[in-house]
Computed example of a mutant assay.
Amino acid sequence: MQVQAKYDARVFLSERMTRTQGLRLKRLSEEAYQPAQYARDLSSAEAARRIQVLEAEIELANSF
C-alpha cells in the first residue's frame, strides 16, 4: 500500500526558514551590504528567494 502525501502550497509558504537558511541569509546580506534583507521571521520560501537573489548579486559584483 502506497500513501501519497498531498502537497499544500500554503503550508510550504508558511513554514519558517531553517537555521541553515537563516545563517546563510545573514552572512550573504552582510557580504552584499544589504542587512535589511535578513529578518528572523521569514518563511522558508522567502528566505530561499532572498538567498538566491543575494548570491546572484554577489556573483555579478565579483565578475567586474
Rank of each mutant, 00 (worst) to 15 (best):
R49P: 04
P35N: 15
A32N: 11
E30K: 09
A56I: 01
L54T: 01
S14C: 05
E30R: 09
R49D: 14
Q52S: 14
S43E: 00
R10K: 11
A39H: 10
R40W: 10
Q21I: 01
D8W: 05
F64D: 15
Q21P: 06
V53C: 03
A39E: 10
A47N: 00
A56T: 04
V11C: 07
L13F: 06
Q34C: 05
S63F: 03
E55C: 01
F64N: 14
E30S: 03
R40L: 13
G22D: 06
E15D: 09
R50C: 00
D41P: 00
E31R: 13
V3L: 14
A56P: 02
L42T: 07
Q34N: 05
T18R: 10
G22C: 01
S44C: 08
R19K: 14
D41V: 00
V53W: 04
F12R: 13
T18M: 03
A39S: 09
E31T: 08
A45Q: 05
P35H: 14
Y7W: 10
E57D: 15
A48S: 13
A56Q: 07
Y33W: 09
Q2R: 14
E30L: 06
M17F: 03
Y38F: 14
Y33E: 11
A56N: 07
Y38Q: 03
F12N: 09
E57W: 07
V3H: 11
E46L: 06
I58A: 05
L42R: 04
Y7A: 11
R24V: 10
A5T: 09
K6A: 10
A45G: 00
V3W: 05
A36L: 13
R49E: 14
A45W: 00
S29V: 03
E15R: 12
